[in-house]
Amino acid sequence: MAEDFYQIKVKRGSEEVPLSNFKDKVLLIVNTASECGFTPQYKGLQETYDKLHTKGFEILAFPCNQFNGQEPGSDEEIKLFCERTFSTTFPIFSKLEVNGPNTDPLYQHLKKQAPGIFGSLDLKWNFTKFLVDKKGNVVKRYAPITKPEAIVKDIEDLIAK
Rank of each mutant, 00 (worst) to 15 (best):
K9H: 14
R12I: 15
T32G: 03
G13Y: 01
N99W: 12
E16V: 13
T103M: 00
Q108V: 12
C64D: 13
T89D: 13
L131C: 10
F57T: 04
F81A: 13
M1T: 08
D4E: 15
D133G: 01
P115H: 15
F38H: 04
K140V: 05
L110H: 05
V132A: 01
F93I: 07
I92C: 05
C36A: 07
E58S: 12
V139Y: 08
L121N: 12
K153Q: 15
G56L: 05
R84D: 14
P91N: 14
L28G: 08
G119W: 04
S20Q: 03
G56S: 09
L131A: 07
N99P: 00
T48H: 07
L106R: 04
T89C: 09
L158I: 05
A143R: 10
P144I: 15
E35V: 11
V152G: 01
K95V: 09
C36H: 13
C36Y: 00
L110Q: 08
A61I: 02
F81R: 00
T48Q: 04
F62V: 01
W125Y: 01
K51Y: 10
I117D: 14
L106D: 03
K9N: 15
G100L: 03
I145R: 11
I155M: 08
K43T: 13
L131Q: 14
V10Y: 02
T32L: 03
A2S: 14
C36E: 11
V139W: 02
K135Y: 00
L131V: 14
T54G: 09
L52F: 00
I29A: 07
N137H: 07
A61D: 07
F93W: 08
D50N: 13
T48G: 05
I29Y: 05
M1D: 11
G13P: 12
Y49N: 10
E156W: 10
Q41A: 00
Q7P: 14
I8Q: 03
Y42R: 02
G13M: 02
D122R: 06
P105I: 00
I159P: 07
K43H: 14
I159V: 00
T48E: 03
T54A: 13
I159E: 12
I155R: 12
H109W: 12
E156V: 10
